[in-house]
Design a protein around this nucleic acid. Sequence first.
DNA 1: TCAGCGATTAACT
DNA 2: GTTAATCGCTGAA
Length: 202
Amino acid sequence: MSPKAVKLPQAFYLHSDVVEISLRLLGKVLATNIDGKLTAGIIVETEAYAGHRDRASHAWKGSPTGRTEIMYRAGGLSYVYLIYGMHVLFNVVTNKAGIPDAVLIRAIEPTDGVEVMLDRRKMTSLKPALTNGPGKLTKALGIDLSFYGLSLTGDKIWIEDRGLRIPESEIESGVRIGVDYAGEHAKRPWRFWIKGNPFVSK
DNA sequence: TCAGCGATTAACT
DNA sequence: GTTAATCGCTGAA
C-alpha cells in the first residue's frame, strides 16, 4: 500500500444505499497481495445489485444458503463466484446483515504490479484488454474461488482510497449488462463508469 | 440423479 | 456476427 493510501473501513460498506456505494467505489483502488505479489488498479466501472428488491440479483428468490449466503452477512466481505464454468467475478458485499446487497466490480485501470498482471493474463504489453471486463480483472489480480467470503479489511484483498475524487460530471450511468432476463429490473440504470476511461468494458 | 443454463471471454467465420 | 469452452447451482424427475 502506498503512503497516502487509506484502506476503506468496514463502516464504508455498511451504508444502506448500494447505489451510493457503487458511485463512491469509482476512483477507489482494488488491491490484492498474493504470495508477496502486490497488484492493484483503480475501479472504473461498477454495477449495483440490490438484493431481494432486485430480480437481477442472485439473491432474488432465495434464502441465505449456497453461494449467496455470504451476501446476507454484514458488508465488507468479498463475494466471488464462477460464471460459465471458467470466469471468476468479484463482488463487494454491502449493507447490514440480513440484506443481500452487493456491488459487482466490472473493470479496473491497472496501477500496481502490472508485470505480474501481464504474466497472469499471458499478455506482453499494457492494453485495455488486460482488465476491461469482470472476468479479466479477477484473473489479472489473481482472484479465484478461494477469495469467497474473505474480509475486505484484511491483508490479502482490500479496497483503498488514494485521495482520487471523481466529480459527478465524470460519471456515466447505464443499463446493466447480461441481465435481460430480469424484466423491468434490467432497465434500471445501475451500472456506473468513469466517462471516457479506456479500461471500461464494452 | 441429471439436464439446462449463466452478472463472460476469446477465437472463430 | 457467431460460437465453443466448462462447472456449480437450480429445479424438475
